[in-house]
């Protein structure tokens, strides 16, 4: 987990956007490994496929359409930002002191809904994987909403980028924008 923070700091420092993209992929894989350790195998699969795969492809497409180097500029607001971030972080760390301890069986999250799902869903729904039965049955409306969001995002990307033929262009690089919308 500490390695995650190291990669995060590296992302802040590195100026080359291609390297940032690679670090994002590494970061997603690390998070996926962490999810496996925390017994969340379905989430780990999704994170590895979506975070380390799809997201990196999308970012590479964007970088190829825009620029690869981040410009170095005067760090005028950085100090201010650092102060804000430190205060917020300190407040959040103070808030964690009230949290139930990691893996505590008496934590509120494990007392109420969890026994219902873990004990009865295999017989009620008939499949052993509880994540799937909760996803598709108990919280089916959420999944429908998720599909709507993805559809809206796909329509939005297509509208923003267009098909690459009708729009006026200011530079020749605009010709590639059709590829990016396909990859989305």
């Amino acid at each position: 987990m500490t390695f995650l923070v190291v990669v995060g700091i590296a992302i802040v420092r590195v100026r080359n956007l291609l390297a940032v993209t690679m670090l994002t992929g590494i970061y997603s894989l690390l998070v996926a490994m962490l999810f496996v350790l925390l017994d969340a195998v379905d989430v780990a699969l999704t994170e590895a496929a979506v975070g380390a795969g799809l997201l990196v492809i999308l970012m590479l497409a964007t970088i190829s359409l825009t620029t690869r180097k981040e410009k170095v500029h005067a760090t005028r607001q950085s100090l201010m930002a650092l102060v804000v971030v430190t205060i917020t972080g300190a407040a959040l760390v103070y808030a964690t002191l009230d949290m139930p301890r990691f893996g505590d069986p008496e934590a509120p999250a494990h007392v109420h809904l969890s026994p219902r799902f873990t004990q009865e869903s295999p017989t009620e729904i008939g499949i052993p994987n509880m994540v799937t039965s909760v996803l598709a049955s108990y919280r089916g409306m959420d999944t429908l909403g998720e599909a709507v969001v993805i559809f809206a995002a796909a329509v939005g990307v297509l509208l923003v980028l267009g098909t690459g033929t009708v729009r006026r262009r200011r530079d020749p690089e605009g010709e590639k924008s059709g590829e990016a919308s396909e990859q989305s």
């Binding site: 989430v43 994540v131 909760v134 919280r139 959420d142």
Partner: peptide, 20 residues
């Protein structure tokens, strides 16, 4: 003893929405 499946489902949805 199983870990709680409900947060897993919520995060599964959130990952996909996030990438969108």
């Amino acid at each position: 003893q199983y870990s709680n499946p409900l947060p897993h489902v919520l995060i599964l949805t959130a990952i996909v929405v996030g990438v969108a």
